[in-house]
């Protein structure tokens, strides 16, 4: 008694979620690369990707509704499908933050680069992409153990953010243009928020597997 049609639907759903994850990670990476290299063309590509990600979210939501209506999943299947519907909302929001970073670039490019903040931005990007990967891996494979270590990664993001904050205040105090400095702060802020949404996803995945609410932030 194997439910072939349902298994196929579930597989298709998983594939779409992985595709969306790849796209969001790619967008975030591209946004940060564009910002660091002040590449306005790359920034435009990043912004265009937002529409693709929004469409992916809609399609995955539709897939979930179809599975619920036509296959009536229960137990772990039900929890997988319903948590997927929540997870894609967080993924889509992460995409919005990447888009935002690319938009900030339009305000600061062709101006002096705040080299002091760049390493932090690079680190934060790396950490947040790693967090997204950990979450989605757990969601797809069901191995949720790595999720419990995610709050450590989130702490790192918070530390980098606080550090950037201090550095930006110092730069402003020593004569840096406040608006430009604040735009850099916003980039860091966006990356810090990506971490929060990754934690949301992790909490959702843990709930879907254990029916227990945890607070990772």
């Amino acid at each position: 008694m194997i439910r072939t049609k349902f298994e196929e639907g579930l597989k298709a759903l998983k594939n779409s979620i992985v595709e969306m994850e790849q796209e969001v990670k790619k967008q975030l990476q591209l946004a940060v690369e564009a910002f660091i290299s002040q590449d306005i063309e790359k920034g435009r590509v990043t912004i265009e990707m937002d529409e693709v990600i929004d469409r992916m979210e809609d399609e995955i939501e539709k897939k979930c509704i179809d599975l619920l209506a036509l296959q009536q999943p229960i137990a772990s299947d039900l929890r997988f499908v319903s948590s997927s519907m929540k997870i894609i909302t967080d993924l889509e929001r992460i995409g919005d933050y990447a888009t935002d970073i690319a938009k900030i670039l339009e305000f600061v490019h062709e101006k002096r680069i705040l080299k002091e903040i760049i390493p932090n931005i690079r680190h934060m990007c790396e950490i947040s992409i790693g967090m997204i990967e950990t979450c989605l891996n757990a969601h797809i494979t069901g191995d949720i153990q790595p999720l419990y270590l995610l709050s450590k990664e989130d702490d790192k993001l918070d530390t980098y953010f606080r550090d950037s904050f201090q550095e930006i205040i110092r730069l402003i105090n020593s004569g840096e243009t406040a608006i430009r400095a604040l735009h850099y702060l916003m980039v860091c802020r966006n990356l810090e928020r990506v971490g929060d949404h990754a934690c949301n996803i992790a909490e959702r995945v843990i709930f879907a597997h254990t029916m227990k609410k945890v607070d990772l932030k």
Partner: peptide, 11 residues
């Protein structure tokens, strides 16, 4: 066993 039966992954 319950999980497998109710989700239709039996046998």
């Amino acid at each position: 066993l319950t999980e497998r039966y109710i989700t239709g992954r039996f046998g």
